[in-house]
Amino acid sequence: MFRKLHEPAEAVTVYVEGKPVVAEPGESLAAVLLRQEAIWSRPTPVKGSRRAPYCMIGVCFDCLARVDGVASIQTCMMPVRDGMTVEHQQRRRCLPS
């Protein structure tokens, strides 16, 4: 659905569901997820409907994913870094106590 308009001068590798994906330093993880074939990041807790990055400004929480083993990361607010791992979030979000 989405694609980059240019090839990055520098690149990092991010692993989305175990698959290596080339990303540009400084771009958000949500932007990387939107370029994937399966763009969803989490199911809704009640009906299991698939959600994907939506607002891209940290308001809607539709972009939550498990990043480097930590759940409930807002991917729209997370810049990519080399070697980071991303998995679909499978449960409702975790809120710190």
Rank of each mutant, 00 (worst) to 15 (best):
V46S: 11
V59I: 12
A71I: 04
A38K: 13
M84L: 09
E17R: 14
K19L: 02
E10M: 10
E24S: 13
M84Y: 13
A23H: 03
K19N: 10
M77E: 12
A38R: 15
R42A: 07
K4Q: 09
A38P: 00
A23W: 00
S49V: 02
G18W: 10
A30F: 08
P8Q: 12
H6R: 11
S97F: 06
K4M: 09
R51I: 05
A31C: 00
D62C: 07
M1S: 06
L34G: 05
I57Q: 10
R3V: 06
P53M: 07
L34R: 13
Q89G: 05
W40T: 10
Q90M: 15
V80E: 04
D68M: 07
G48V: 06
V70M: 07
G48E: 07
M84C: 01
D82E: 07
P43K: 14
A23S: 01
T85S: 08
C76V: 11
E17A: 13
V14R: 00
S41M: 00
C94R: 13
S28D: 02
R93N: 01
L5V: 10
V16T: 01
R91L: 11
I39L: 10
A30T: 07
A65M: 15
A23K: 01
G58P: 10
R92F: 06
T85Y: 01
E10W: 06
R93I: 04
G83D: 03
P53H: 07
W40P: 05
A23D: 03
I57L: 12
L64D: 01
P45G: 06
R81T: 05
V14E: 01
E17T: 04
Q90P: 00
G69Y: 11
D82H: 11
A31P: 02
A30H: 11
I39G: 02
A23T: 07
G18R: 05
A52T: 02
L29N: 01
V32G: 04
D82Q: 10
V70S: 12
E24M: 12
R50V: 00
C94S: 12
H6S: 13
L33Y: 01
V21F: 11
M1T: 14
G58I: 13
A71S: 10
G26K: 06
A11T: 14
G48K: 11
T85W: 00
V21D: 03
E24A: 15
A71E: 15
V16L: 02
R66K: 14
P20V: 09
R51G: 03
I73Q: 15
R66H: 00
V32E: 01
E7F: 02
S49G: 12
M77Y: 01
R93A: 06
R91N: 08
A11N: 02
I39M: 14
P79I: 14
L33E: 03
V32Q: 02
R93K: 13
D82T: 09
G18T: 03
G58M: 09
L5A: 11
H88D: 01
R81G: 05
M77Q: 15
T44P: 07
R81I: 03
K47Y: 15
V22Q: 05
R51K: 15
G58V: 14
P79G: 12
A38D: 14
P79Y: 07
M1I: 06
G83P: 08
C60T: 05
S72N: 05
K4R: 14
S72H: 05
Q89Y: 04
A9W: 08
A65T: 08
R3Y: 08
H88T: 10
P20E: 02
Y54N: 13
T13D: 04
V12D: 11
P43N: 11
R93Y: 08
